[in-house]
Amino acid sequence: MALTLDDVTRIAHLARIEISAAEAAGTLAQLNDIFGMIERLSRVDTSGIEPMSHPLGGTQRLREDRVTETDMREPNMRNAPEKQDGLFLVPRVIE
């Protein structure tokens, strides 16, 4: 069940985090330790058990279909790294 360097590179890409070869190697060892600890779960018999997504259960509350938000563009965009004409700017998006 051990992870490989390829796994680390693949996951880092999925998570969009740049990772150098050296970092990947170090991370690999740590991740394998952690997964070694997690392995114990696979030996537990959970047949017939419902997974628990929410500790207290319950069902989703519904909100009335009503416009409640006003134009808060200025404060909401206050922390934007780059913006112009009310748009967030990013390096060119290629389809």
Binding site: V44, T46, I49
Partner: peptide, 8 residues
């Protein structure tokens, strides 16, 4: 599996 053990 973890969510099931969580319920346990």
């Amino acid at each position: 599996q973890a969510q099931k053990v969580r319920r346990l």
